[in-house]
Design a protein around this nucleic acid. Structure first.
Lengths: 294, 294
DNA sequence: CCGAGCCATAAGTAATGCTTATCGCTCGAC
DNA sequence: GTCGAGCGATAAGCATTACTTATGGCTCGG
């Protein structure tokens, strides 16, 4: 059963004149006649009274007409819904990333995007890079914002990895601390200092641990936290020193590393075998075009 | 867009495996692949992620799946509804006739029919034969029960006329009347008798008038009524004599005409260009098979 | 009674859609 | 790491479908 046939049947039912209906449908009269005949055969009943001059719906035709009309409306609505996805008028995006990405970066990028495409809904998930990669591979996330390098297990060809921003970490110092007012710090400065860090497992923490080990510095870990805001609050309260992304320090009071840039490479990861939806394509472009302020 | 394609799309979406889905659908894998490709082209979006091994719905596919499923359900419901018409499980019949037909005949015939086909709904219209014929020609009634001969204007080829029962009129006599207890009457008996008759325009009345004129009998018309029940009541109350169908006199107290049978030919009339619905075909058969009791 | 209008049918052709055969790719096992 | 199995996409050939033009039969109105 061809949907075009159903549409033609509806037009014919409305006009009651096969020749005229065929003309309106850019068909010849025998073609429409054949379509109706086929439709009637597939239903097993006559849909029209053949009355020499003109056609009139039978009871069966009247009955079927309603169903066919509703079904076609539904299909048209489906096409419209699919089209609205393509026009970015609707759709959902599931994005995941670490604390820095979801807290400091995504809000600034999603804001303008949402203004331009208010129909797109976001689902944001904050988790360690490893978890994000797994979620992307499982198809739960459309896009992941993670720190390179990836865990070896996930680095297979199943992921599409696109380098993104280079994020620099800065050292937050409490107001009364001797290091305060300096522009840069050196690893030796951290000896025996109280340190507030992300909980282990996060990419930022791993980066920090690696540098501490390389420079043989052993600060006193006084606290492990999960969010950037709590770290800055703790530092401000004088509990200790803390590392956060430079992006999370808009006032610029954090100290950059004077030995070697303390940076990490952020990247976008997707499943290679997933074709991007229009919404994802557009948002990905927004991500890649974004530059940190200043 | 072919409905079979949509159905196949749904099966494929469910299995996620093209080869297996094609097998279940009695298709080869390339055929199904082509169908999906065509469907995607007509929608302008990819419905599946091609992931080397197996398929997974895209967001567009997930969206469209719901609409397509609902639309197919609707079409199936339409087919079912049309089928139920054919199986006499549903449908409507619009029947019209004169007072005798609708009051005395139809109830007895519709009763068993309705027991056998409780899904069929009747619309009964009582009106003079001329009005019934017009309603049949206008398509408002599926079937008319009328007295022959038809008005000349309606006797064209547009009507299909099927002779039915021969109905005999009998004379009802009040209990205290001298004619009471007789089995037959003669037209001369009616001289100066008070007569209760159907209102003019009805077929029964025309028949009566013709016979009265032929026999040059002039009874005193004391009342013109529209219903059989009111005539029998009036006669019983002693107002006068009255003619009704023998079918409306189950007790057999009415007097038959002793001069010449006072009968009329009833007939079924339909529009010739209307094909009969299953319900009409079945009911028509019930009508033609019916015999008056006794 | 004739002509116009309308639907059904027939014959021929163009296009659609299926089948078989094969390729490229991915994944899992050895 | 390599090989084999499984899966989907593609190509070529063919059968079927569905359209076109031409025509017949029928009804209705002048």
């Amino acid at each position: 059963m061809e949907t075009d046939n159903l549409r033609n049947f509806l037009v014919l039912a409305q006009t009651g004149n096969m020749t005229r209906a065929a003309g309106r449908l850019n068909l010849t009269q025998p073609a429409l006649s054949g379509q109706v005949k086929k439709l009637e055969q597939s239903l097993g009943v006559a849909l029209f009274h053949r009355q020499g001059r003109g056609l009139a719906l039978t009871q069966a035709g009247e009955t079927f007409r309603r169903y066919a009309g509703d079904a076609l409306d539904l299909l048209a609505a489906g096409q419209e819904a699919v089209g609205s996805l393509g026009r970015l008028a609707s759709g959902t995006l599931a994005i995941g990333g670490g604390a820095t990405s979801t807290t400091c970066l995504l809000p600034a990028i999603i804001g303008p995007f949402h203004s331009r495409h208010p129909g797109i809904r976001f689902t944001i998930r904050e988790a360690p890079s490893r978890t994000i990669v797994e979620a992307v591979l499982a198809g739960d996330l459309d896009l992941g914002l993670v720190t390179l390098p990836l865990p070896a297990a996930a680095a297979g060809t199943r992921l599409l990895v696109e380098p993104w921003l280079v994020d620099e970490l800065v050292l937050l110092v409490p107001p009364a601390h001797p290091l305060r007012r300096r522009r840069r710090f050196h690893w030796r400065d951290l000896h025996n200092q109280p340190l507030i860090a992300f909980e282990s497992g996060s990419a930022v923490r791993q980066l920090l641990d690696r540098h501490l080990a390389e420079h043989a510095v052993a600060p006193a870990l006084v606290m492990e936290l999960r969010s950037i805001a709590s770290i800055t609050s703790m530092v401000a309260a004088g509990i200790g020193l803390g590392f956060v992304s430079r992006l999370a320090d808009p006032s610029g009071q954090g100290l950059r590393c004077g030995d070697r840039p303390l940076t990490r490479q952020l990247a976008l990861v997707e499943r290679r075998d997933r074709s991007r939806s229009s919404a994802l394509e557009a948002f990905r472009a927004s991500l890649l075009a974004w530059k940190p302020p200043g």
